[in-house]
Design a protein around this nucleic acid. Structure first.
Lengths: 212, 212
DNA sequence: GCGAACACGTGAGGC
DNA sequence: TGCCTCACGTGTTCG
């Protein structure tokens, strides 16, 4: 151990550290309580509730709002709580020469994911005929209708099946990359209830141009 | 002060009190953290956020859901954030003999308030022709169409005006009673933004029978 | 070793 | 008085 003077310096440092600590903790509390205050102001009737009751009310609000949205948007394009990749070949009106594929991806709404998704779609040797995106809370669902000319390498739907598969793989790899970066936080195992949803109906969701 | 033995007893009591205290505090923490956990499970993508970030996300969710609801329910009956009593005489198709009144009450959704409201309406010397209630979050809006025969005591719309006034007073007293019991928690002074709402349009809101 | 985030126990104040 | 909620400072752990 050092000289007495050194001891004093050490003691001062220790005190400073303690001060920093308690101040940081104070700031942390302020952040949290600030958010709680915001929630209070956001939800009427919670003015004189304690923290626990407030949070309970918040939970109710979120659930209730989701129910309301689910009812109100019934019959429109709405993302569900479950991740999903769906790719299927479209019934094609004019036979043979072109194939058309409808692909949908439902997942968390993240900007990076959107970027990756666009890249993946553009990398495909196909033309995007229609693209639609709808978000709800932190979730999103993307629908693509993409088509390409059937180059007749093989008869029947052989070519179509291969394309469907490649599109599906592309979407899945986008999703997988995202979850790899997110450490895959056990979404699919829990998340009990699913919402009824009708995918293929006229929508009032935002156009792609607004977001991309 | 008492004998030494008494001192020991007091010390034991104090220790017990302290124990109780810390245990109660522990339970309180558990309640709060439990609610935070359910919020985490409710909102995807918040798994590895700290408390403050989680709450921030919750706030966003609530705002976002409300926006969504506001868009989706456009043109339907939706309660606003502002308390309101509106009573007006209806244009009456068949002249004279009957008067028809449309009354609406927008306020917090409370069961007791609903009971009082029904009593108030039933106490009126009028017949309820139509009643409709819509809730959103913790808010509700009630619409009544009530009518009575014009007993011809005075000419012109004199009678109608008196009836409108009595209905308005009835609704207001219901609201006042409620806020008196709630200590009037400064709702009307703040609550900045109002939502656009169209009151008089076809609705898909729940029928009265479901709640009354 | 620091900064950040958390749980903990304790003192203060409100019915 | 006893019970409850809250804010505070502290000990601890993790990156």
């Amino acid at each position: 151990m050092g000289k007495p003077a050194q001891k004093v310096v050490n003691a001062e440092k220790a005190l400073m550290a303690l001060r920093n600590h308690s101040e940081a903790e104070r700031r942390r509390r302020e952040r949290i309580n600030g958010h709680l205050a915001t929630l209070r102001s956001l939800i009427p009737g919670t003015n004189k509730m304690d923290k626990a009751a407030l949070l309970a009310e918040v939970i109710n609000q979120v659930k209730e709002l989701r129910r309301t949205v689910a009812e109100a948007t019934d019959g429109t394009l709405v993302p569900t709580d479950m991740d999903e990749v769906k790719v299927e070949e479209q019934e094609d009106l004019n036979d043979g020469a072109f194939i058309s594929i409808r692909a949908s991806l439902c997942c968390d709404f993240k900007h990076e994911l959107l970027v990756d998704l666009r890249e993946a779609i553009e990398a495909l040797p196909l033309k995007t005929v229609r693209a639609e995106i709808a978000t709800l809370g932190s979730r999103m669902v993307n629908i693509f209708v993409i088509s390409g000319c059937n180059e007749g390498e093989s008869d029947e739907g052989e070519e179509g099946i291969k394309l469907v598969k490649s599109v599906r793989d592309a979407l899945r790899s986008v999703l997988d990359k995202f979850y790899a970066s997110e450490e895959f936080s056990s979404r699919n195992t829990l998340s009990g209830k699913r919402r009824r949803v009708s995918f293929f109906s006229p929508t009032n969701s935002s156009s792609l141009g607004d977001i991309w």
